[in-house]
Simulated assay, not measured.
Amino acid sequence: MAGELKEVQGIIFKRQKYKEADLLAKIMTKEDGIITLVVRGALRPKSKLGAAAMNFSYGTYVIYTSGHGLSNLRTYKEVKQFDSLYNDLTKNAYASFILDLIDHAFIEYQPLGKYYDLALFALNKINQGVDSEVITQIVQMQMLAAFGVEPNLRSCVLCGKTQGIFDYSIKLGGIVCSDHFRVVNSRLHLTPKAVAVLRTIGLIPLNRLGKIKLDPALKKETRQAIDRIYRETLDLNLKTKKFLDELKFFK
């Protein structure tokens, strides 16, 4: 398949040295998926391409691609940066983890659709100073579907009830109402508030998301539940997640 020049809109999120003065940079795009770009001369001091391919840069890039393998960054039109993600270690760690998570859910050149919107939403919010951990939990819950393990958050997995007090069962793949608490051994024994948060952040469309404020104890409970869901359903072991956990430990 012959290559073509193509304009893509995307977010740069991973870089590594490639040959003497070149870089490999990963870009996340909505329609063309995740693409690895060769950025020639990017490591030279005055390289404009290098500046446009910094992590957390986003905008319109002109690439030469054949739709598989490595593509080449030729030029760019309008590129901005999420400055506070670049300059703040904690925000940087959350944003890196979010993009890493999306990167692992898709193969190269597989369209991202709504998950690109999710990435952009998350980076914008974290960059603006919204609670990074809450935003990350929203992404984690909504990404379960992309990994093929979407939980049933709408109704009890056993009887279909939608109102009442619920708990969560990883084994059963969703929420369980209080009618079945005595017979479900696999439930997580979460507080009703924590289950309500998991349901809300897992189901709500992004454009309807107002301000979600969680007190520290509730946020910790939902974080531990989400971590356990990921641990027991997906084999990921992401370095970005490990770094984030270490960062929390030292705070």
Rank of each mutant, 00 (worst) to 15 (best):
L214S: 11
H189C: 15
L238C: 11
N237M: 10
L238E: 06
A194G: 05
N185Q: 13
L214T: 08
N185P: 03
N237S: 14
L144W: 08
L234G: 07
V197Q: 02
F181D: 08
D167W: 03
L218E: 02
I201C: 01
L190H: 06
Q224I: 12
N185F: 08
G164I: 06
T233C: 09
F166G: 02
V139P: 04
R187M: 13
K193Q: 15
P192W: 02
V197K: 03
P151G: 01
Q163N: 14
G164D: 02
I138A: 06
K239N: 15
L172G: 03
E133Y: 07
S169K: 05
S132C: 11
T136Q: 10
R154I: 10
N185A: 11
L236E: 08
K161E: 10
R182Q: 14
I165D: 08
C159A: 12
I229Q: 00
I201L: 11
L172M: 13
A194H: 01
S155K: 14
E232D: 15
R228I: 11
L218I: 01
G173W: 02
R199Y: 00
P216G: 10
Q140R: 15
L238T: 09
K242L: 10
A217G: 12
I212K: 03
A194F: 07
S178Q: 14
G160I: 01
K220W: 07
I201M: 06
N207K: 14
R182G: 08
I226R: 03
G164N: 05
S178L: 09
H189Y: 15
K220R: 15
I135H: 00
D235S: 14
L172W: 00
Y230F: 10
L198N: 04
K239A: 11
A196N: 09
V183K: 14
R199H: 06
S169P: 05
R231C: 07
L198Y: 09
K211C: 05
L209Y: 05
E150G: 10
I201S: 05
V183W: 09
L238H: 07
T136E: 13
F166V: 07
T233F: 03
K211T: 13
R187N: 13
L209C: 04
L188T: 03
A217V: 12
S178V: 05
R228G: 09
Y168N: 04
K220L: 13
D227F: 08
E232G: 12
E150C: 06
I170S: 07
N185C: 04
K161G: 09
V195N: 00
N185G: 13
R182V: 12
I226W: 02
A145P: 09
V183D: 13
G202L: 01
G174Y: 01
R231W: 14
V149I: 14
S155R: 12
H180S: 03
V157F: 04
